[in-house]
Design a protein around this nucleic acid. Sequence first.
DNA 1: TCAAAAGTGTTATAGGTACACCCATGT
DNA 2: ACATGGGTGTACCTATAACACTTTTGA
Lengths: 247, 247
Amino acid sequence: MTAPSKAFRSRIQQDDIYSIPIDDFFKSAFSVDCVIFGYHEKQLKVLLIERGTEPYGGYWALPGDLVYPSEDLDAAASRVLRDLTSLSDITTRQIHTFGKVDRHPLGRVITVAYAAIVEIQDIRPQASSWASDTKWHSIKRLPKLAFDHKEIVRSAYDAIKEYARYEPIWNEVLPKKFTLTQLQEFYETVLNKAFDKGNFRKKINTMKFVKALNESQKNVNHRPSALYSFDAKAFKDYRESDTLIEF
Amino acid sequence: MTAPSKAFRSRIQQDDIYSIPIDDFFKSAFSVDCVIFGYHEKQLKVLLIERGTEPYGGYWALPGDLVYPSEDLDAAASRVLRDLTSLSDITTRQIHTFGKVDRHPLGRVITVAYAAIVEIQDIRPQASSWASDTKWHSIKRLPKLAFDHKEIVRSAYDAIKEYARYEPIWNEVLPKKFTLTQLQEFYETVLNKAFDKGNFRKKINTMKFVKALNESQKNVNHRPSALYSFDAKAFKDYRESDTLIEF
DNA sequence: TCAAAAGTGTTATAGGTACACCCATGT
DNA sequence: ACATGGGTGTACCTATAACACTTTTGA
């Protein structure tokens, strides 16, 4: 890609900005930042990287990168996620775009925030090629973060709670076969809210896309739990119906 | 603002993109596009401008503009809205950011979509300084749109429906004193769904922030309706409680 | 037989849906 | 008196919440 063509620069210009040299509009950049939530046994965490360089050297920050000139925005988010976790096929959800003038001390950079949720055990720590140090931090006790990343995390956390209420995001985290207790613990952790066991199970029973298997746990020192799985086809049907269940 | 400093360009660069000249990251621009919904008497419309120049000359498009180098993102959206409608103090809501590589035929431009809703009667048509022609189009019958603007409108429409379910956005559109029928018509129009009169009124009665006034309509050839108004203080209390009402 | 967790049942209340009916005003 | 929209009441049904109870396993 070469410099923006004269045609591009004149065509894209609007009448009332004639007083500002058009080149100034090309002194900005855009990035993606990923809020990667990690779930494991009633713990919700966020994957942060430690910055090696200024600005905010030594601070913890969200993994992110500039978007390649010939790379779709969503693809950039998937790439950051993949480089850091070695996981592809993870659903990333665009959350919000942050564009305050002074949010980056060295220039004008707007950033598009994405969120994803993974099972912590599925990830080899330090798998990234470019993050100097990475660590899972409990969502409840975050360190000081670089840039406006605290605000980005807060926003992504709110968003993931909304997603959890309407979509089976637990399918991205729980094992293929899971127990209802595991499912309840997931909801309780993410939504930070306790549910009554009986009522929870009644509600799950109304969800046709949570299918009981003819299997149960083995070698537990209590009554073994029945195992359930996510039924993608039933979920598709449910999506197309108009009776939506929420938490 | 001058060209990005060497320091900025080297600091912002990440290790794994060394193969791409850093200058290429500054050949892009970002814009805001506004989906301005207009409501008036059971009609929901979108304000479009006619493009005078290529690309997409003659097409209808969303009002939008490049973001000024020293302008916050949200401020840019407010500016576009204000220039076109002469209205300030309108709530704009960021919807989504569109960043496909090929979405702008003349270069790499990502755009942040914002939505707003206004009362059509509040606007002097053609009030804009830079839009060659502007027109309200019914949400149900949109013309061919420039760029990916169809997708943006779709996305904003979905978002405004969600907002309507949880927030009193009718307060941005209905007169200070309104009737319950007007309120019901607003919901029916925006959500594209009919409600039972009695049940609707029962639900509204549970909302403490819709306050009955001791006034009624005058000079109507039927039983005059009681007038209601939005109670900002009661709404604040409601927001801080945990029992949220939705449609 | 005990601990631990799975799993079920009962009851009360709140909220949603459908629908019928009455009311106040101008013409 | 009638057309027009405003406004209310009831009966039914479903969803939710609180809570007590029974069941199955390994140790």
